[in-house]
Each structure stands twice: as C-alpha cells, then as structure tokens.
C-alpha cells in the first residue's frame, strides 16, 4: 500500500446543536483520485476545512503529509492546492495578476512557474484578460491554475465543476487526470455521478457520517442491496407511481428517458411487468441492468 497522504481519524465537528461531521475516518493514498460525495449539507466542505486546518475539529484528528491539521496547518497549506466551490478570483484583476497574487501568497517568485501553471490549464496567452470577462469554463481553469501554482502534491477540489457545461467539465477532468499522472493526489467533491465513476475510490457522506468509501466497482457490488432494472413505459408518471407502490421495489425514480427500479435479489422482470400491467400500463419494457453509482448514492444517501 502506498503512503497515506491524508489520514482522518474519527474527525468530528459540532456546531451549536448539530454535528456537521460525525466521527469520520478515512485515508487517501499517494496517487489516488478520491471522490467525496454526499447531499448538500452532509458535511463534505466541513471535512475539507478541517483537513486544511481552517476549522478546529471538536474531536478526532486529521493528518496531511504527516502534519497535524491543528498544530501544523501552515505546513499543510504549503503542500496542498485548494479550489473552493466559488472560484476565489479577483474580478478586477487580470488572469496574470490573479495568478501572481496567489503565487506571492505561496512564496513562488519564479515567473516561469506562474506561466507554466497557466500553460498547463490551457490558458496560455490570456494573462492580460480581466477575470470578470472570462467565460465560466475559463474562470474555472484559472482558479485551478491559482491552486497549483506552488506545485502542490495534494489537490483538494470542492465542487470544481459546478455550473460549467458538459464539454468544459470533461476537459477539466482530463486536466485532473493529467495532474494525477504527474504524481498529484486528488481529493474532490462532486454532485456528478459520472465524474465519481472516474475516481479510484469514492466516499459517500450523509448527515455528517461517512457511509462507505470504496472503489466504484466495489460500491456497486456491495453497497447496493438488490438488483437494478430499467423500465420503459409510454406514460412515465403513472408508471412511476405504480412502480413506487409495487411490492418488492425498494426504490423507483427517473433515469434519463426511462424509469429505474431497485428490487431485492428475488425481483424478476416478469414480476415488475405483471405489477405494472395490473395498473393498466401497457407497452412496457423491463430490462435488468448493471447498477450505477447513482443507484448506490440514492440507496445510501436517500431519505
């Protein structure tokens, strides 16, 4: 097993009256790309703030590169690149000035290193453009450049792809993988399940607790209690209602242009078809499919 870059040990944060992060333990190893998922408000960002030493744990501890997040936060921050949900850019400054500012914060004086960061994210030649004038996909990349200008070996990215279009999102992930191939370790939160599929391992949080952390394949094998079915019906709404009421169906929902149902191990296509045609629903197609991470997420994090 490669060396642990991040070790969270029973990490806990209580605010007045509620526990935002509740005894979370995990490790992130060198070279991994770990996805950290969970509903809004489940404690993902609070976990990150504790890892970075920005927030004091109420209990438990975190070590990053062996440094204690409370006592040695500065040593951690010098080695970590952090990109927050709201890209922290100065709108009135140009791209180059934004980068120079962050380089200064990290003590990077070499202008070549700054240019290298811009080149790496594919933004060569936009130094002179004001941050406010950049399209969102470029702002996202500039924010990444400011997070990697000091060549950190751990990247912590908090919903980096929120609000960007599908094509920009794809090329952003190409970048993340390029950085990982060059030896960076990546810890990233996202609401996009297809992005989570790209990760080495995925953790799922709910109400402050880490429910599971495993490879996408193992999560699908072990964390989903049952079988997944694609159900194609002419009229979606009555079919959805009927599926949700059907005995043996643990969960039914929308999936692209059709419906998806999770049943117990005993579920069969014939039983689902029979259940639906009992409601007068015709022209059905029911197919057994492989579970997706979204199925796992909805099963674990759903109400």
């Amino acid at each position: 097993m490669s060396e642990a870059v991040v070790v969270a040990d029973r990490l806990t944060k209580r605010f007045d009256g509620f526990t935002a992060v509740d005894g979370v333990s995990f490790e992130v190893h060198s070279g991994e790309v770990v996805g950290y998922l969970g509903p809004n408000g489940s404690g993902k960002t609070t976990t990150i703030r504790m890892l970075l030493g920005l927030l004091l744990p109420s209990d438990g501890q975190a070590r990053v590169f062996g440094f204690d997040s409370v006592r040695q936060a500065e040593a951690i921050r010098a080695r970590v690149g952090y990109m927050s949900q709201k890209f922290a850019l100065y709108d009135d400054l140009t791209a180059g000035e934004n980068l120079a500012f962050y380089a200064g914060v990290y003590g990077v004086v070499d202008a070549r290193q700054q240019r290298a960061a811009l080149d790496l994210v594919g933004l060569k030649g936009i130094d002179g453009t004001r941050a406010s004038e950049l399209p969102i996909g470029w702002r996202q990349r500039l924010a990444l450049a400011t997070a990697i200008v000091h060549q950190p070996s751990l990247l912590i990215l908090d919903e980096p792809t929120s609000g960007v279009d599908p094509v920009a999102r794809r090329s952003f992930w190409d970048l993340i993988y390029r950085l990982a191939e060059d030896g960076a370790t990546v810890f990233v939160t996202t609401h996009y399940m297809d992005e989570a599929e790209y990760c080495t391992r995925v953790g799922i949080m709910r109400r402050g607790r880490l429910l599971a952390m495993d490879s996408p394949d193992d999560l699908k094998r072990n964390a989903l209690p049952g079988l997944a079915w694609d159900v194609y019906a002419e009229r979606m709404l009555p079919a959805l209602d009927a599926l949700q009421a059907l005995q043996g169906v643990k969960r039914a929902g929308l999936a692209g242009d059709h419906l998806r149902a999770i049943t117990g191990q005993e579920g069969t296509a014939a039983a689902i078809e029979a259940g639906l045609s009992g409601h007068g629903l015709q022209s059905l197609r029911v197919e057994r499919t492989e579970p997706t991470l979204e199925d796992v997420f909805l099963a674990l994090a759903g109400d």
Binding site: S162, L240, L254, L298
Partner: peptide, 30 residues
C-alpha cells in the same frame, strides 16, 4: 445546478407531475 442527486431526483418528479397538470415548462440544464 450544484444540487445533489437525491434532490435532483425529487425535483424532477415534481416537474413530471406538473406536466400531468398541463403546465408548459422551459428548463435549461447542464
């Protein structure tokens, strides 16, 4: 945008129900 899969799922089930009531919807989405 920026909404988790659980919320997204229940939000869309509401939209589908509104269609059943005859509402016309224009939605932008990534």
């Amino acid at each position: 945008g920026g909404v988790d899969p659980v919320t997204r799922q229940s939000f869309w089930q509401l939209i589908i129900r509104l269609l059943g009531q005859g509402v016309a919807v224009l939605v932008s989405t990534p």
